[in-house]
Design a protein around this nucleic acid. Structure first.
Lengths: 210, 210, 210, 210
DNA sequence: AATGAATGAGCCTTCATTCAT
DNA sequence: AATGAATGAAGGCTCATTCAT
């Protein structure tokens, strides 16, 4: 029943959007009474949160496997592929849940563990990944980029998963490379020159450390 | 009065979020009656759209100057700086307007010209920018990345504008470089070996160290 | 100015109906400010009443001439012709004003003199008209019939004035004849037989007194 | 509940008139919440239409029996009696519904079948009814006369049903007779001289005494 | 457990009327 | 006198939530 309701909620969100997402519609779509819905979820927010968790778990399960890769880049690659795939499986749903997720009330109730970011942190911390000055920030940024790119793609109805995956990989690796190149000099007393370069001539060679 | 109402709308959006954004609240915050609001905006949507246009115009005015730069990278740099600055001026507002913008009804009424994307297209088409296979897609992607990164930063209350600007630049340039390298290298004097792979087969090697 | 406003009110009523009949629309149509409207009419009702009086006066002026006819039937004929003509000049307006007229607040403020009914009373009281048991009731009934017939015609967009006039005359004369035939026997102890006739065979001969 | 709401709507219409007829008032009068009203009627118009249909059905049920009469005049008599009785049962309600019925939006949603006019058409088409040149027009006219007479009676608070019925019968029969006489007398054994005139030149002579 | 009728706060919008300029 | 911006009561309608059955 819980599953029925969650799937109904997902479908309502997909077909009627945020505006049409109300408990009556969900119950109707699920083919149960509104009373039953409230027997399983104490409030609309609880339902929304449960849906987010379901989608997140679905993703996390696949994404966990990325840790099995030996190399950091392969792991990252895997993670991106899963993220894109997941967002593409139900693009509208993913995007709308992202929007809902920004509501303070929901954020508060949402577990911050088991998320993509924790995996990212793990991968970025590996020795063979482009070293970042602040892994935490990098993880957040990478996550934000992926989400931004894939949501935008979903929003305009893109269907070429392979192409999108390639672009997202490019973005992530580009970012990590550039940041890696820029940051070794954290305590560098003359950051001026280093900072400029990437901007002027987008450092095709940066990624590697000599 | 129009300005008063728009500012009130902005503040309501910032302080009460999308849920608390209703015409009564806006009128109250503006210190005018609800009737007055409707004398200047025929509907709530019209008010929202006007607010979007105001924010966009504010940004566009600054962003236009980016075209004055001789080099593509400097122009891009400028554009990013403006985008970050704009989103940082009122992070919550910018983010919530982005969300609203995805509502079909609003999109339809929104002018597609004068947007950041048109500027991006212009800049990316320059000879000295990393050549892209599909400038249109690149413009969209860059836009999506910037939005994703800056919204996320705003969402978690980041305040270090300089740092964020640096990271966004890194992401954008990284993306463009990677994508440029991936296409049958048009002007790159050193298309090298490694640049090719990441594109076709998302970079198992790129970021790694030898 | 008063005239301008009244005509504007009439036109708004005609083009937008009862629902679209509001003071702002009237002022706009008149090309004056809403403030000016309220300088000449203390309230919307006052405006409506003034419009009714204008339309009624317009009609009454023409209808008065009917009293000049020597014979009652000619007078009645004239009156009907004027009534039909008047209602046909602006069918929608006439009908909507009739509707408004039924509002108690308006009725109270409306002068009952100078109306069609007073003329009717006058005519029906003549010796050569079919004698009615209760002239007052007859006048009301005739008025009600005319209004009912002409409003219905106006409502469905009839344009054949001549035909309608003929039918209204038939109705009025038929009614008066029948009532006249039925009523001489007001104190008749056996009204049974008399009452039946008209019903069974609509008394073509009743009208006249032998 | 539907019945409760319809009755409440009827009472609000009767006691507060068209102006006071709003959904909140209806719900309050029915002793239910506004939400309940909207659970049974999707809109105010739907409620109004349902009320019209209820009143019409109430009338139609009784009126149908008029077709059982052998003679056309008896049938017509019956129909008129029912119409008068119905309008008298709730004069204000009947009149206000008539007014509402003229709103295009309601007309469109109202079934045109099962109405008084269809019965009238049936009766007027009978052989023993006064033959009409255009039965359709006659039916409309008769309907309009009845409505006009009875509404006016209701409006001024008349209570003498019997008297009103008699007068309405007189009007209808008078009309039909006159109109029948006016057309190239189809079956009238005594088309006579006088019958012709009234139609062509509205009856200067008919009602008069020699 | 399931149902779904009932609730009512709250939202968007209209429009008659006022009043400072 | 004329203007029209400002007012705010009121109306139609939605939807999260409750509760008796």
């Amino acid at each position: 029943m819980v599953e029925t309701l969650l799937e109904a909620a997902a479908q309502v969100l997909e077909t009627r959007g945020l505006e049409g997402f109300n408990t009556n519609a969900v119950a109707e779509r699920a083919g149960v009474s509104i009373g039953s819905l409230y027997q399983y979820f104490p409030s609309k927010d609880a339902l929304t949160i449960a849906l987010m968790e379901r989608e997140n778990a679905r993703f996390y399960k696949e994404a966990l496997a990325s840790l099995d890769h030996a190399s950091g880049s392969a792991a990252l690659d895997h993670l991106i592929r899963v993220a894109v795939w997941q967002q593409f499986a139900r693009p509208t749903l993913a995007r709308l849940l992202d929007v809902e997720e920004s509501r303070p009330q929901l954020r508060a109730a949402l577990p911050s563990t088991g998320s993509m970011r924790s995996l990212l942190l793990d991968i970025l911390a590996r020795e063979d990944s482009p070293q970042q000055a602040d892994t935490d920030v990098a993880a957040r940024d990478v996550f934000a980029m992926i989400r931004g790119l894939v949501d935008a793609a979903g929003e305009r109805g893109e269907t070429d998963t392979a192409g999108l995956t390639r672009r997202v990989c490019a973005a992530v690796q580009g970012y990590l490379t550039m940041m890696s190149a820029a940051t070794p000099a954290e305590e560098d007393p003359h950051p001026a020159d280093k900072r400029e370069q990437p901007a002027r001539k987008p450092a095709p060679r940066g990624p590697k450390r000599p």
